[in-house]
């Protein structure tokens, strides 16, 4: 990835973060913390790697994405809107009665959403199903999913990991959004699922550990996953919950809370400043 491309991706990530803050603010509820932590992963996927068609979201040969941690819908919707699946103006209608933007991703309602999620543990299984179908049909599309670290407390995640390795789904790449926090506090205090990288290795996945808010590292990890044969890849993306908005960073209180007007303005100002430093608008 050249410097110009990296710069553009960084600007896109800031753009998406601004939409996340604004959407959750207008909704009056939602999940900003985890949305901000996985923004860079979504940016690298949708703006560098994934083969998707905004004019034909159902293209049979497209790459698929499943947001297994479905509560971070604001991040997915903002990414899809910036990508062009629907107008970014719609984002402020998130969670509103007349909006198609449901509180959690709904494939029947939102163009570009490949799977309805929100109940933790199920999305990664669905992504296994998509990868299995791809293998069966000898198609070369790839399947991506993001799971949460708190989500790994759900037993179904491990059932899905078992199946992914059993069927040698090297067309499947999962990201662990490893921000270390869940609703009630630190994952290690609530119910520790650690050590996650060792567990994924023991489940026979190819495991890559990176700084999950570093676009270059994410890009390289995806390239490595694409080149890996015979097993699925888990990218353990060490992230910061609330990344990009200083007062939200690493605070579990921002898991599922909307900012006030003042907090929204401060967050947007900070992101505007970040954009300015990147030379963008």
């Amino acid at each position: 990835m050249d410097k110009q491309q990296l710069l553009e991706l960084k600007k896109t990530a800031v753009k998406i973060r601004r939409h996340i803050i604004d959407a959750v603010y207008h909704a009056g509820s939602g999940h900003p913390g985890g949305s901000l932590s996985c923004t860079d992963i979504l940016t690298a996927l949708y703006f560098k790697h994934m083969n998707v068609n905004i004019k034909n979201p159902q293209d049979a040969n497209r790459d698929r994405f499943v947001l297994s941690k479905g509560h971070c819908a604001p991040a997915l919707y903002s990414t899809l809107a910036v990508k062009g699946f629907f107008p970014t103006e719609e984002l402020v209608n998130l969670r509103k009665i007349d909006s198609f933007l449901q509180g959690h991703p709904s494939l029947k309602d939102v163009p570009g959403v490949d799977m309805s999620t929100g109940s933790l543990g199920q999305g990664i299984s669905a992504s296994v199903g998509m990868a299995l179908a791809g293998k069966l049909d000898k198609k070369d599309y790839r399947v991506y999913t993001i799971i949460g670290d708190g989500e790994c407390q759900e037993g179904q995640v491990w059932e899905a990991l078992m199946a992914g390795a059993h069927y040698k789904l090297d067309n499947l790449t999962a990201f662990l959004d490893h921000n270390g926090l869940q609703i009630d506090g630190k994952i290690t205090d609530v119910m520790s699922p650690e050590s996650l990288p060792e567990k994924f290795k023991a489940f026979n996945w190819n495991v890559i550990e990176i700084d999950g808010n570093d676009l270059e590292a994410i890009d390289k990890a995806i390239e490595t996953a694409k080149a890996t044969k015979g097993k699925p890849t888990m990218v353990v993306a060490n992230t910061i919950k609330g990344k990009g908005v200083s007062f939200m960073e690493d605070q579990y209180g921002w898991h599922g809370k909307a900012p006030s007007k003042e907090e929204r303005d401060n967050a947007i100002a900070e992101l505007d400043q970040a954009m300015e430093l990147l030379g963008g608008e």
Binding site: G129, A133, G134, A163
Partner: peptide
């Protein structure tokens, strides 16, 4: 395998791919 919850969601994923 003995993982019915997983099976249902895998089935769902395959169905999104036209199966």
């Amino acid at each position: 395998g003995i993982a019915e919850a997983n099976m249902m969601a895998i089935a769902a994923g395959m169905a999104t791919c036209g199966k």
